[in-house]
């Protein structure tokens, strides 16, 4: 967020991102995926980055761990995790950070697992590598983790290969893997999007519970307002590679101030709207290869005015509620 030292917290933030900018270059075009994103995250806090496809939300998350294709992407700005400068780290230090302090979960669990080793072995290996404990101890911990993520008959599942598990189980196993070294920060990239509704809610509740028990901070990327509401302390709404509004989840839901956030909430369909016309946002999401210099939402915004052609200011409505819109000033 834009206001680093917010009211009453003397603790230093766990994550501090300043002016993070990511550009992808290919032979045909340059994609301005993330444009000067700044925020801080406190220990134990859950931040949801909410945005539609192509808004830059996943890229922001990956940028935090420098998980972007090396030759085609250009990352600038400043990222600190636990007080350490991520952009200055060596590959080795980074790999170490990824395994210990930061855990990651993805939409597709198969990317986290190596298909030729059993789930248990992969979790055990991670624990041994990062914590230097013996194999029996690591196996015990792995079993404990599978129990923790509520995988039924965990002892048997330890020996299972990733493809032998169902979708929800795989997701749970991936969470276990991500938690294997007790990270203080969990990065989650749409981990429930591919799941059925009845499984999605289970995974969300599990994550919420584990987050509370372990006191982890979480950055959770999603396109689904419903998911964000279930899990977030704070929501950052992303559009055109920028955070257009950040604030506590209650505030964003009850009193959204950015026209895009409002549009997103009113166009999210509830059954109770039956028989009424939905208030849709007109037009299409922006083309990230030619973003306008000013507000990226202006072409679709019903309140657009000439001032919107300049980059919109970040307006602090309260210490924790920021809106990037000329009308809020």
């Amino acid at each position: 967020m834009h206001n680093p030292a917010h009211a009453g917290t003397a603790r230093s933030p766990l994550v501090r991102a300043e002016d993070v900018t990511v550009r992808f270059e290919s032979r045909d075009a340059t994609v301005q995926a993330v444009n000067s994103v700044s925020f801080t995250l406190d220990p134990g806090e859950v931040l949801c980055i909410l945005g539609e496809s192509g808004s830059g939300k996943s890229v922001t998350l990956r940028a935090l761990m420098r998980l972007l294709p090396p030759r085609r992407s250009f990352l600038t700005g400043r990222i600190e995790i636990g007080g350490r400068d991520v952009l200055a780290m060596s590959e080795r230090a980074l790999a170490d950070l990824r395994g210990t302090e930061v855990g990651m979960i993805f939409q597709e669990p198969m990317v986290a697992f190596d298909p030729v080793y059993s789930v248990g072995r992969q979790i055990t290996e991670t624990i041994v590598r990062h914590e230097g404990v013996g194999r029996p101890e690591a196996t015990r911990r792995a079993l404990d983790l599978l129990e923790r993520v509520r995988i039924p008959s965990p002892a048997r599942r330890l020996r299972a290969y990733p493809h032998e598990l169902s979708g929800g189980m795989r997701q749970r196993a991936m969470i276990a893997l991500a938690l294997s070294c007790r990270p203080s920060l969990l990065l989650a990239d749409e981990p429930t999007t591919a799941l059925d509704a009845t499984v999605q809610i289970q995974i969300l509740l599990l994550l919420r519970e584990l987050q509370r028990e372990l006191g982890m901070a979480v950055i959770f990327v999603t396109h689904d307002v419903g998911v964000a509401v279930e899990i977030a302390d704070r929501i950052a709404v992303m559009y055109g590679g920028r955070f257009v509004e950040t604030g506590p989840v209650g505030q964003i839901m009850r009193d959204p101030r950015h026209p895009y956030t409002r549009g997103l909430l009113t166009s999210t369909v509830h059954g109770s709207l039956r028989g009424t016309l939905l208030e849709a946002i007109p037009g299409s999401p922006p083309d990230m290869t030619r973003l306008p210099p000013g507000c990226a939402f202006a072409p679709r915004c019903r309140y657009a005015e000439p001032r919107c052609e300049a980059p919109p200011p970040a307006v602090d409505l309260s210490p924790r509620h920021m809106v990037r819109c000329v009308r809020a000033a």
């Binding site: 509704a197 009845t198 999605q200 809610i201 289970q202 969300l204 509740l205 689904d224 307002v225 419903g226 998911v227 509401v229 279930e230 977030a232 989840v249 209650g250 839901m253 999210t268 509830h270």
Partner: peptide, 16 residues
């Protein structure tokens, strides 16, 4: 299993 859409009344127990 539908999300509650209300931060004050989050789902507490998974239905299945």
């Amino acid at each position: 299993a539908m999300p509650s859409m209300d931060p004050d009344r989050r789902t507490e127990r998974p239905p299945l």
